[in-house]
């Protein structure tokens, strides 16, 4: 992981005790092709949830 992602983290601070996303994860969050796929998947997931929730 590039040190750039960690520059703002103070050792032993609360922020240092958690996961920090690396460059690949950050890239995928705004990668249009991947996000189009996720868009479809999230919509299907939400639709299934709605169908399960109506009684």
């Amino acid at each position: 992981m590039s040190a750039k992602h960690l520059q703002h983290i103070e050792p032993y601070s609360p922020q240092s005790g958690t996961m920090i996303p690396g460059g690949f994860v950050k890239f995928m969050r705004t990668c249009v092709i991947w996000q189009l796929i996720r868009f479809l998947i999230i919509n299907i997931r939400m639709t299934k949830l709605i169908l399960k929730s109506h009684h």
Binding site: F39, I42, N43, M46
Partner: peptide, 14 residues
């Protein structure tokens, strides 16, 4: 199976 979470541009579109 129904409890999920993710972050990304797709969420913004939604």
């Amino acid at each position: 199976d129904y409890t999920t979470g993710e972050i990304g541009l797709a969420g913004h579109w939604i």
